[in-house]
Measured scan of single mutants.
Amino acid sequence: TGIVNVSSSLNVRSSASTSSKVIGSLSGNTKVTIVGEEGAFYKIEYKGSHGYVAKEYI
């Protein structure tokens, strides 16, 4: 489990790349469930599926 550490919002992406499609966003202080790691990204549970967020903001 981690907490989103941004002042505005954090993009949730379809894969572990900054060039991948943005599938949603999370507000600061949102609790997320981390299910894996891939490079500079965490794989998280997101809306019944999975998404990826940059580690530096969790």
Score class of each variant (00 low, 15 high):
T30N: 06
S20I: 02
I34V: 06
L10Y: 03
G39K: 06
V12L: 03
G48L: 06
V53P: 00
S19Q: 13
N5M: 11
E38T: 08
K43H: 06
T30A: 12
T30V: 10
E38F: 09
E38R: 06
V53H: 00
V22S: 07
I44E: 01
F41D: 04
G28D: 09
S49E: 11
L10Q: 05
V35M: 09
L10S: 05
N5E: 07
E56F: 08
G51C: 02
S8N: 12
Y46G: 00
G36M: 05
A54H: 09
S7N: 12
K43V: 13
V4Y: 03
I3Y: 13
S20R: 02
K47D: 12
V53D: 00
K21T: 14
G24T: 02
S7A: 13
V35D: 03
S25G: 06
A40I: 10
I23A: 02
T18D: 14
V4C: 06
E45T: 08
V32W: 02
V53W: 00
S49L: 11
S25F: 14
K21S: 10
A16C: 05
S15M: 12
K55E: 01
S14P: 03
T18R: 12
N11V: 15
A54Q: 15
V32Q: 01
S14Y: 10
Y52Q: 00
S7H: 13
I58K: 01
G51F: 03
G24A: 04
V6F: 06
F41A: 02
S49T: 12
E38P: 01
V4H: 05
S9R: 13
S8F: 11
Y46S: 01
E45G: 04
E56M: 11
A40Q: 13
A40T: 09
G51A: 10
N5G: 06
V35L: 15
K21D: 13
G2S: 06
S8W: 12
Y42F: 09
V22C: 07
T18V: 13
G28L: 12
K31Q: 12
V32M: 03
I58M: 05
K47A: 11
G36D: 08
K43P: 01
I23G: 01
G24W: 05
G28E: 09
A40Y: 09
T30Y: 06
K31A: 10
V22G: 03
L10G: 04
K55M: 08
S9K: 12
I44L: 02
G39R: 04
A16Y: 04
I34C: 03
E45M: 11
A16H: 06
S17L: 07
S14C: 10
T33V: 14
H50E: 08
S17I: 06
Y42D: 01
S14D: 13
T18E: 14
K21P: 15
G24N: 02
L26H: 01
G36T: 04
V22Q: 04
K31P: 10
V32N: 01
V32L: 05
S17Y: 06
G48V: 04
V4N: 04
R13D: 01
A54C: 12
Y42Q: 02
S14L: 14
E45D: 08
E45L: 14
T1S: 13
I34M: 03
I34L: 05
I23Y: 03
G48E: 10
R13T: 11
K47G: 13
N11G: 09
Y42P: 01
K47I: 07
Y46H: 05
I58R: 01
E37D: 08
V12A: 01
S27V: 14
E45P: 04
K43I: 14
H50N: 07
K21A: 15
K21H: 11
R13L: 15
F41H: 04
N29I: 06
S25E: 11
S25L: 13
K21I: 11
S14I: 14
T30D: 11
I58S: 02
V53M: 03
Y57E: 08
K43F: 06
Y42C: 04
V35F: 07
G24Y: 04
T30G: 05
E38M: 07
Y57N: 09
G51K: 01
S14V: 13
A54L: 15
S8V: 13
G48Y: 06
S14H: 11
F41P: 00
R13C: 09
A40D: 15
K31C: 12
S19D: 15
S15G: 13
Y46T: 02
T33Q: 10
V4K: 04
S25Q: 15
S20F: 07
N29D: 08
T33P: 03
I34N: 00
G36V: 03
S27P: 15
S27M: 14
V22F: 07
T30S: 12
I23Q: 02
T33R: 10
G39V: 03
K55V: 05
A40P: 14
V22E: 04
E56H: 12
S20W: 04
K31T: 13
V6W: 05
S19N: 14
Y42A: 03
S17R: 07
N5T: 12
Y52M: 01
V35C: 08
G2F: 05
T30R: 05
G39C: 07
